[in-house]
Design a protein around this nucleic acid. Structure first.
Length: 1100
RNA sequence: GGGCGUGUAGCUCAGUUGGUUAGAGCGCUGCCCUGAUAAGGCAGAGGUCGGAGGUUCAAGUCCUCCCACGCCCA
């Protein structure tokens, strides 16, 4: 980074490792060189058919911009960056447009709070135009923060060329989509039972219901709806075909005027009883009767008959209240209402086992009513006030009418029992009033007829993980219900249905702006916005009904309909001719990714609309991520502050660390993950630092040596086994990365990367580091070139391969390795514009990899022996004996002799086949091969195998088979286990035994001490901040054995050579002043109880 | 209430078609190595594999039920 440095060398690593700072620098570099822009514009051009590259279609799900991004966005955001980045490196042009979900309840609720205007009536009074203007102004309030955060995480996505669901072009395509469905006959008007806040006069969404007041159940301690006291009324419904009653129970007497049927469970047994006191004959479920009697609400009874519920079905009863008697019979005289019907949902947990049905006021009731063809009776509007159809109750609020209704029924002798009950009940989140459930008119898309096609197209989708597609999503599709896609709201895409005010069946569905202008006789181009305030006033005369005026229906679309239309609407399909072909060719899109919670959300709506419109799936590959939980396993909660601010985490550890941490978690397999700040910190140490260290090593020595890469470096084929080994491992690594990325399986990327870094740092560089130390003219120059070229190739390839995962650090490495050194050509100024590495199968050598594994295993065994015997590695030993019956292992160990001796600091290697005298043989049955064959005999045979003695085992090994318990055991059926005998310094593993000769000769001991001295000097060099190539003058003050070592000419040369000392002065210490601590200058060390004083001076 | 997941060491997670003594990383303890390393190596402590039944010669793994947690839907 000093300006005097020539550009063709590897830059010195920064003194401090500061990943966040490094990332900021890379962001700046990307901006200065327009790197991101070049990549994104390539994708955008492809969408218009103006790129020579093949295109890869990625569709981004739009988030609501009403809140700030959190980990639930950053995790899918990382996935959405890795895959397109990889595909771009594979030569595809990838369009990556950011999207904003602008409509819907989140923003409407915010604006309601801001304005203090709540519910339909208030908003209409306030003015839809002003209300929507406030939504428009507020919905993008955090887009800058989003952009900043998303960019800071390294995600490349096009914000300039973004899409918004409130854009007129987007909304027009939504109209087009709807019109297509309308033409296909997939749209119908129907009812849906919805919770209504009578105080607001507005239906509420599930989300709003969940926002309502909560409290704990006093018994179960579970959180639930706020509790309320309601009437508990059991009424008698007089049968018309017998002098008897059906008893039914309700907690909502206000729905009784609308009663149209009574439901029984077809398979439950009911009883007919006579009440001893009154002689009344009644039907109900016997267990429930016993409950009433136990509570003293009903007296003694006499059982008359028993029958299953299905035998009661169809029996007529007299209306409890007279208001809707006209629905008793149909025009053809058949029984219509006021009869017993069957319903599977009826339970015997409460009430009488016979359930009052008011189809307009309950989801279950509504379903039964639809099935039975019952009329729709709803004597009230959204405010819950009875209308004139219910006589004396007219004008009363539903809940207030309870008392009057009960009183009237009592007076008419129709009440069996009247009590009160406290139970959880949903309340309005805004006004705290109890909600009323009622059937409201709305618009549906027919999904049920599409089920078979939905399931079939789902089979073509590649789900990661698979179970989400086959399980959760597949089940949902197979049971898909018609989709209520209208909302009684204000800020959304209006339903493009105009209906005649004279004849409600006279309707027009408008599929484009131009068509509306034409119908309304407006100038082309005069409609510039499609929100309600601009569209609702547009009317036109009916073509069918003379004198009728066509007016838009009031509803807007469910915002999921809009996000499901995104593949078409983001490109203004089919209106924008330049992108028509792209849209049609890229359905299904190649790739999408979102959280598990989108299964019934975006994934579903995309799939339903693509199936309905084009008879295709909407996407080909999808990665589903799990939820990010706080470290305590709970949901992340702003209120609880149980998670760190993402911006702080990035500032402290870097975005690469966060990305690698997230993508290395179970969350990429759709499992929930617990976010831990420590996990991010560990990721820096485990993932980024190893690569940085490796670069640091290369740069340090290359600079000292004046080595720099040339265009030949990357193709260089070294001959040394160590080089060929790491290059082979590199091919394996690239292969793993490609396989995983091609399969959209991201969970093994980081582990594979970690493995190659480990091999690089802890074997390749560690074993090969002396190759880089040789000064000019020393040793084999071509070997040194091999070493540099190999290390450079490895770092370069790793950098390319890991770039999609850690884009910042990979870019930093690339800049150092390729750009600063002048290797990168025109247009090659960013790693992200380069091609993803190919596997060079010719450089893979699996036999060599196995050999190195064998050597490393022997090293580990040797280390274990040294540990156990307390033999420091710095102290040389005379011999190591490796015994193995496997010729492959013996050959591998011989080949790796140098590494083995070097690592273990041993002088001589002996390899032998015979391990007799070193190990004891014992045997175990191989359950895997024998289990299936032997079955119940397995236990006896296993015992016989375990009892085999050394002689029997040797015989088995020779013959390859043995006869036991009448069974012939062949090769592999008996597993021979070797254990070292007695006290010797030996370790055994499968197929190999290692023994160390622990005897220390004087010569070995002196050499060990010399190495101790070297170690102290090296530490001192480092502490003094000397460069690895600096020469020093060295002065040692010591006495006794250390003085003898330092005075030995051979050892002194060794010390000088290792420490780059040009001069070594040994000062005796006859007075013992250093032992006495009288000397405090320089450094003092203890070695084997003797004191050493070291003085180091840089040789000028 | 239903669907789909999850539950294995203090923490984060592996654990193949059932197979012997259940593994790794982090953290902890001890020792070692370091002429790039903020790393690394060796060892130790730490487990009723959520619980209970069952199938099997053999169950963390298969079956049934239950418990807890999560998402979605009622």
């Amino acid at each position: 980074m000093t300006s005097s440095e020539p550009l063709s060398t590897l830059q010195a690593p920064p003194a401090q490792f500061d990943l966040p700072g490094l990332e900021e620098g890379i962001l700046q570099l990307w901006a200065e060189r327009d790197v991101e822009g070049r990549s994104l514009r390539e994708g955008a051009a492809a969408a218009r058919g103006r790129s020579d590259r093949p295109s890869f279609a990625f569709n981004d799900g739009p988030p609501f911009a009403t809140g700030l991004p959190h980990y639930g966005h950053l995790l899918p955001g990382t996935i959405k960056d890795i895959v397109p980045r990889y595909q771009a490196m594979c030569g595809f042009a990838v369009e990556r447009r950011f999207g904003w979900d602008c409509h819907g309840l989140p923003i409407e609720s915010l604006v309601e709070s801001d304005l203090g205007v709540h519910g339909q009536a208030e908003i209409e009074a306030y003015g839809i135009d002003r209300f929507n203007a406030a939504c428009r102004a507020g919905v993008l309030r955090f887009t800058k923060e989003w952009e900043t955060m998303v960019r800071r995480t390294g995600r490349w996505v096009d914000f300039e060329n973004d899409y918004k669901t409130m854009d007129p072009s987007f909304m027009e395509t939504v109209w087009w989509v709807f019109r297509r469905l309308w033409d296909e006959g997939l749209i119908y008007e129907g009812f849906r039972v919805q919770p209504v806040s009578p105080a607001l006069g507005t239906p509420l969404s599930n989300f709003e219901v969940a926002q309502g007041p909560q409290e704990k159940d006093p018994v179960t301690r579970k959180e639930g709806h706020k509790r309320i006291a309601d009437p508990s009324l059991t009424a008698r419904f007089r049968l018309e075909d017998e002098d008897a009653s059906l008893w039914a129970w309700t907690t909502t007497p206000w729905t009784l005027p609308s009663n149209l049927a009574l439901a029984v469970h077809p398979d439950v047994t009911y009883v007919k009883v006579r009440l001893v006191d009154t002689g009344e004959i009644a039907y109900l479920e016997p267990g429930r009767l016993a409950d009433y009697q136990a509570r003293g609400r009903v007296g003694a009874t006499e059982e008359l008959a028993r029958m299953p519920g299905r035998e009661l079905v169809g029996r007529p009863y007299a209306p409890l209240l007279p208001f809707f008697e006209r629905y008793r019979e149909r025009e053809d005289g058949s029984r219509w209402s006021f009869k017993v019907v069957a319903a599977e949902y009826v339970t015997v947990d409460s009430g009488t086992g016979i359930v009052h049905q008011a189809p307009a006021f309950g989801e279950d009731d509504y379903q039964v009513g639809q099935r039975e063809g019952l009329p729709m009776v709803r004597p009230m509007g959204l405010t819950g006030v009875f209308d004139d159809s219910v006589g004396g109750f007219a004008g009363m609020f539903a809940k207030d009418a309870d008392k009057a209704i009960v009183a009237r029924l009592k007076a008419e002798g129709k009440v069996v029992d009247h009590d009160s009950i406290v139970h959880p009940y949903p309340h309005c989140y805004r006004t705290d009033s109890p909600l009323l459930y009622m059937a409201l008119s709305t618009w549906f898309m027919k999904v049920e007829p599409l089920r078979e096609r939905l399931v079939r197209h789902n089979e073509a989708i590649h789900w990661v993980p698979e179970h989400v597609g086959t399980g959760r999503f597949g089940n949902w599709l197979a049971a898909a219900r018609d989709w209520n896609l209208a909302r009684s709201r204000f800020w959304g895409t209006p339903l493009p249905i105009w209906r005649c005010d004279e004849d409600p069946s006279d309707m027009v569905c408008v599929g484009s702006i131009a068509r509306l202008e034409q119908l309304a006789g407006m100038e082309p181009g005069s409609i510039t916005d499609l929100h309600r305030e601009n569209i609702d006033p547009i009317t036109f005369p009916s073509a069918k009904t003379p004198g009728g005026t066509m007016r838009r229906v009031p509803e807007v679309f469910d915002c999921w309909f809009e996000s499901g239309s995104m593949p078409y609407a983001q490109s203004h399909y089919p209106f924008d001719q330049s992108k028509r072909q792209y849209v049609e060719e890229h359905l299904p899109a190649d790739f999408i990714a979102e959280g598990l919670d989108q299964t019934r959300g975006w994934f579903y709506t995309l799939h339903v609309l693509a199936t309905a419109l084009f008879d295709r799936p909407a996407f080909e590959h999808v990665i589903v991520n799990g939820l990010v939980l706080a470290e305590d396993g709970k949901k992340m909660s702003k209120r609880l502050k149980n998670y760190p601010d993402p911006a702080d985490v990035i500032r402290q550890y870097g975005a690469d660390a966060l990305r690698a941490y997230l993508v290395n978690s179970a969350a990429v397999r759709a499992e929930p993950m617990r976010f831990s700040e420590r996990g991010v910190r560990d990721t820096v140490r485990k993932i980024v630092l190893p690569l940085w260290n490796a670069y640091n090593f290369l740069a340090t020595y290359a600079r000292a040596d004046g080595w720099s890469p040339s265009s030949q470096t990357l193709g260089h084929r070294p001959s040394a086994a160590l080089d060929r080994w790491i290059l082979s491992r590199l091919q394996a690594f690239v292969g793993q990365m490609r396989t995983e990325l091609d399969a959209y399986a991201l969970s093994n990327l980081v582990p594979s990367f970690y493995e190659i870094c480990d091999d690089l740092n802890n074997w390749y560089i560690r074993r090969g580091r002396r190759r880089y130390w040789r000064g000019k003219g020393e040793g084999d120059a071509s070997d040194k070139d091999d070493a540099y070229a190999t290390l450079f190739q490895v770092l370069s390839t790793i950098t390319h391969a890991i770039a999609p995962v850690i884009p910042f650090f990979a870019e930093w490495m690339y800049q150092r390795l390729h750009v600063d050194t002048g290797l990168a050509g025109e247009g090659e100024d960013s790693v992200h514009l380069m091609r993803y590495p190919q596997v060079d199968a010719g450089r893979r050598d699996e036999a060599l990899e196995r050999d190195v594994s064998a050597v490393r295993q022997v090293v580990n065994l040797g280390m274990a022996i040294r540990e156990r015997e307390k033999l420091a590695v710095r102290r040389p030993l005379a011999t190591i004996t490796v015994a193995s019956p496997d010729p492959e292992v013996r050959r591998a160990v011989e080949t790796g002799r140098e590494d083995l001796l070097g690592e273990l600091n041993v002088k001589e290697l002996r390899v032998q086949e015979d391990d007799r005298g070193l190990v004891e043989l014992s045997a175990k049955a191989n359950f895997k091969t024998l289990g299936k064959r032997l079955g119940k005999k397995m236990k006896a045979v296993a015992a016989a195998v375990a009892a085999m003695d050394a002689a029997a085992l040797t015989a088995y090994l020779k013959a390859g088979s043995v006869e036991l318990e009448g069974e012939t055991l062949g090769e592999g059926d008996v597993l021979v286990v070797r254990e070292t005998i007695g006290e010797q310094a030996a370790e055994a593993a499968e197929g190999v035994t290692v023994v160390l000769d622990t005897a220390q000769s004087d010569a070995l001991r002196r050499e060990g001490l010399a190495r101790e001295i070297v170690n102290r000097v090296q530490n001192l060099r480092k502490n003094k901040g000397l460069e690895v190539s600096d020469r020093i003058e060295l002065r040692l003050t010591c006495h006794g054995e250390l003085a003898a070592v330092a005075g030995d000419p051979e050892l002194a040369e060794m010390i000088k050579g290792e420490t780059l000392a040009t001069a070594l002065t040994v000062v005796g210490d006859p007075a013992g002043v250093i032992d006495a601590g009288l000397v405090d200058e320089d450094e003092r060390f203890e070695i084997d109880g003797e004191t050493l004083r070291v003085a180091v001076a840089k040789d000028a």
